[in-house]
């Protein structure tokens, strides 16, 4: 369980990035943070993950959260399994190295994200989507029931975006609590139960149905956005709920 209560953060006094952010992420649900560039999405998820201390308000976390940073290069070409093993740092003593239970946890996390076959590949040689899966596996290996993800689908092609979203849905079904920032309102529509909108006029939190509307999204991004329904019966699997995605009116 992750809970933020009246959280405010500013890099200098009286220059707030955001204030008064309150929401809860219960197990088995996802909360998406949306907002234009520079609105403080990354700052908010870092506060939630405990990497930044907010100036006001409290962040309550039952255990330390697993954190998935924005995909980045690594200075050294560690093997994928060694990257995932580092997720076990909390469980390994300062002067110790990971033992067999840590290796098993890391391998299980790699299997969980469907990347067990990559274990001996060097991290920088992986594709962007594979690197993201490895970083998610690293956070899972830490053993926390809460995952905080900073733009997990940014920089990925459509197939890899779908791969990551599918994985995140599976993790929710397993009972994990997810908090993610994203530039894709359609991903929020697909995943999130609740959303946090970081806009120029302030912060809004609420259910996805309430906030992911044409008017709210258009106001948030300053461009005309429509949500549209689509059916997904072409793949042979019954679809219980109608899906929605977004259309941006780019103009002519």
């Amino acid at each position: 369980m992750l809970e933020l209560d009246g959280v405010g953060f500013g890099y200098s006094p009286r220059d707030w990035v955001f204030r008064g952010v309150s929401f809860r992420v219960p197990p088995g649900t996802a909360t998406a943070v949306l907002g234009p560039n520079g609105s403080g999405k990354t700052t908010l998820v870092r506060c939630a993950a405990g990497l930044l201390d907010p100036q006001e308000g409290t962040v309550r976390l039952s255990e330390s959260a697993g954190y998935v940073p924005q995909a980045h290069g690594s200075a050294f070409a560690y093997r994928a399994l060694d990257m995932v093993l580092m997720g076990r740092a909390r469980h390994v003593g300062v002067f110790r190295t990971p033992g067999s239970s840590d290796h098993e946890a890391a391998l299980e996390a790699m299997e969980r994200v469907g990347a067990a076959g990559l274990r001996d590949r060097r991290f920088p040689t992986l594709s962007g989507g594979e690197q993201q899966l490895i970083l998610i596996a690293r956070a899972i290996a830490a053993g926390s029931p809460v995952l905080v993800l900073d733009e997990p689908a940014t920089g990925l092609d459509l197939k890899n975006q779908a791969r990551v979203l599918t994985l995140l849905r599976e993790l929710m079904a397993d009972g994990m609590a997810l908090l993610l920032s994203t530039h894709h309102p359609d991903h929020a529509l697909h995943l999130a139960d609740r959303v946090v909108l970081l806009g120029r006029s302030g912060v809004r939190t609420g259910s996805a149905a309430e906030l992911l509307t044409d008017a709210q999204l258009s106001a948030l991004y300053g461009v005309r956005v429509s949500t549209v329904a689509y059916s997904d019966d072409g793949d042979g699997f019954p679809s219980s709920t109608p899906r929605r995605t977004i259309v941006v009116h780019y103009g002519s």
């Binding site: 969980r112 053993g143 599918t166 849905r169 079904a173 994990m176 997904d232 699997f237 899906r243």
Partner: peptide
């Protein structure tokens, strides 16, 4: 393709997410 939570094949490996040493 984007699968919903209701799609049956997503449930095929539902187990505790905490990766303790497995059986």
């Amino acid at each position: 393709m984007l699968d919903g939570a209701g799609a049956p094949r997503l449930r095929k490996r539902v187990r505790p997410a905490l990766p303790r040493a497995g059986p």
